[in-house]
Simulated assay, not measured.
Amino acid sequence: MTESRGSAGPNGGMRRRTPGTPCWVSLMVRALPATEEFYGALFGWEFRPGPQQLGPYVRALLDGREVAGIGQLPPDRPLPVAWTPYLASDDADRTAETVRLCGGTVGVGPLDAADAGRMAIASDPSGAVFGIWQGGAHLGAAVTGVPGTPAWNELVTFETASVVKFYTTVFGYGQEPVVAADFDYITLDIDGRPVAGVHGMGHGLPRDRGPHWRTYFEVADTDATLHRIVELGGQVRKPAHDSDHGRVAAVADPEGARFWVIQSPH
């Protein structure tokens, strides 16, 4: 995993992200006010309205800087409540077309999100959903590497070989296998910098979910965060344990949206 603490560019703005860089995470929910209350209490987020092309939508801010988005699901669409990473693109239309040519599906867009940028929601050939983001006025998360911000994105799938070929073709990633017995894991790189992981789980993949992207959020204290999540009506899905990258746990918010929390080692 890697950390960065913001991407300040000229004119006080953000630098445009290299294509393929995870630049944003977004959650679509049924009860937007209750979800704002949960994440506000958990991560200290505040909220302000964002583009409304897909319905009511807010951007989450930490200390005044944007970190994530939360939108309201249409009541007539029984879509899953899940965190979705957005991968940067210089041309969302061209990326969407490449997704189709490589066996993926484009479910939404490409469409303009006001002046913020152009977006699409797609799925890879195994069915895992991700977003495509061509930044305009909004280039993505303004801060990472501190508690309450996305720390890592990881695709959980059946096996890595075929799906990694899809992502490297669409986004131009390099790849670095993690060498370990009985562990199918590949890190996706941009210019030698790790930006995301792909974990092949075979029959260990949760049957109720299928292939999907996981979002990890940085926290100051994993165990204290789990206690707070339960207090706020969420669930602990996998208890905290120590990993090579820090103390991690799998959790879910009150609507069932799953995410991971990680306390990086100091």
Rank of each mutant, 00 (worst) to 15 (best):
V58M: 12
V219F: 04
G9T: 05
N153F: 12
F259Q: 00
T169L: 00
G234I: 04
D242R: 05
A220P: 02
G9K: 06
N11A: 04
L101C: 07
P194T: 03
E3L: 12
V163A: 07
V67M: 05
A120G: 09
D191H: 10
R17C: 12
V236W: 06
Q53C: 07
G210H: 06
Y57Q: 09
V25Y: 08
A180G: 13
A113V: 12
V179H: 14
G197C: 01
A250S: 11
P110D: 01
V219L: 01
A252R: 08
S126R: 14
V261K: 00
T160C: 13
R17V: 12
P33V: 10
G107Y: 11
D223G: 04
I186K: 15
Y173C: 02
A196V: 06
P239C: 12
P177F: 09
P49M: 15
P194C: 06
D189G: 13
I70V: 15
A114M: 13
W260H: 10
R94D: 08
F183P: 01
R207M: 14
E218H: 07
G103L: 04
L73K: 14
A252W: 08
P22R: 06
A240M: 03
T149V: 06
R228E: 07
E255M: 03
R228Q: 10
G148L: 05
M119T: 11
V236C: 05
Y167P: 00
P74E: 03
P85L: 08
S162W: 03
P239E: 13
Y173F: 06
E159P: 15
L73D: 10
V25N: 04
P75Y: 10
T168S: 08
T18R: 10
G148T: 02
R193L: 14
V261M: 00
V163T: 07
F43S: 03
R16M: 14
A122H: 00
P206Y: 15
W213H: 08
A68Y: 11
P125I: 02
A141P: 03
V179M: 13
E159T: 15
W45C: 01
E36G: 09
V108N: 04
L101T: 12
V170D: 00
A114G: 13
L62H: 04
L188N: 01
V106C: 04
G202L: 06
G9C: 04
M1K: 04
F217T: 05
A96R: 08
G12S: 01
V99C: 02
G145V: 03
L73T: 13
E176G: 13
E159I: 13
P78G: 05
F171P: 02
A240L: 06
T187P: 09
L205Y: 04
P194H: 03
Y39N: 03
L226Q: 01
V146A: 06
